[in-house]
Nucleic acid binder design. Structure first.
Length: 257
DNA sequence: GGTCGCCTGGTA
DNA sequence: TACCAGGCGACC
């Protein structure tokens, strides 16, 4: 699930539960997770304490009392499950942070594509991210400058985290539909007016994401996963196309190049 | 940019 | 059984 709104929600759900808790041990339950969190790093985490959790784009940064940082990325299917001593671990728990008081935080991730990694004291992970979408310093003019060097279709450009941090395949498509911009429009050639519309659309889509969460895909999205269904604006059949290895959904009639 | 690999599970 | 999946880094 996780694009920016979902990662933000995940962080909010656990922040108050893990803040201040001391780590008893970190267990890895799937070999894919061990690649970036080897046994010596797991051992080194014992006794440390979580003092805060930050989000940047889709990344999570657990700040530790030692000055180190635990970096977490959900990728496609990651999620947190917080548990009490007697609770059963979720079926697809891939790693577990067990606290001294018996509570635990399980990294649930069916596809096991997510990652957890430890960064040494005072080493800030370099994530290569552009501005946060709601950063006030992100003006239409700045957004346009970010998009200007990219001579690619706008849809794949939006998935590049150096443009805006936290956009993913779904909300990029939704924002383009909302801004009435074709996913094929060339990034560098978007007019100021369209860039401005796009930025507003990105923000509106991300803001609306949390509220619509309980709806099914058909209700929740304007284009995503709605192949062949009528466009909510003009009634044309929604189409899909492969772009940069991902599926893009769009309205062929009211999203112009 | 495109394409592949990483992983597993759900669905046609 | 085959294909697809909300991510992303490595490769060409």
């Amino acid at each position: 699930m996780p694009e920016l709104p979902e990662v933000e929600r995940a962080v909010r759900a656990i922040r108050s539960r893990v803040d201040g808790r001391a780590i008893a041990e970190v267990r890895v339950l799937h070999p894919a997770l061990a690649r970036r969190l080897p046994p010596r790093h797991r051992r080194a985490l014992r006794g440390d304490r979580i003092i805060g959790v930050d989000r940047r784009g889709k990344h999570q940064l657990f700040r530790l009392q030692s000055g180190r940082t635990l970096h977490v990325h959900f990728r496609m299917t990651g999620w947190w499950q917080f548990g009490r001593p007697r609770d059963a671990l979720p079926e697809h728990a891939r790693a577990v942070i067990a606290f001294r008081d018996g509570t635990w935080l399980a990294f649930e991730d069916p596809r096991a594509l997510g990652s957890i990694a430890l960064y040494e004291r005072d080493v800030e992970p370099s994530l290569g991210l552009g501005p946060e979408p709601f950063d006030r310093a992100l003006t239409p003019a700045r957004f346009r400058m970010l998009l200007a060097p990219r001579r690619t279709p706008i849809k794949p450009a939006l998935l590049d985290q150096r443009m805006i941090a936290g956009l993913g395949n779904i909300y990029a498509a939704e924002a383009l539909w909302r801004a009435r911009i074709s996913p094929f429009a060339e990034s560098s050639r978007l007019s100021m007016a369209r860039v401005s519309r796009l930025l507003a659309a990105v923000r509106a889509v991300l803001r609306g994401a949390s509220g619509a969460r309980h709806l099914d895909a058909e209700q929740r999205f304007a284009v995503y996963d709605r192949l062949g269904r009528p466009c909510r604006r003009c009634g044309a059949a929604i189409q899909s196309v492969g772009q940069a290895g991902r599926t893009t959904y769009y309205c062929p009639r009211c999203q112009s190049r």
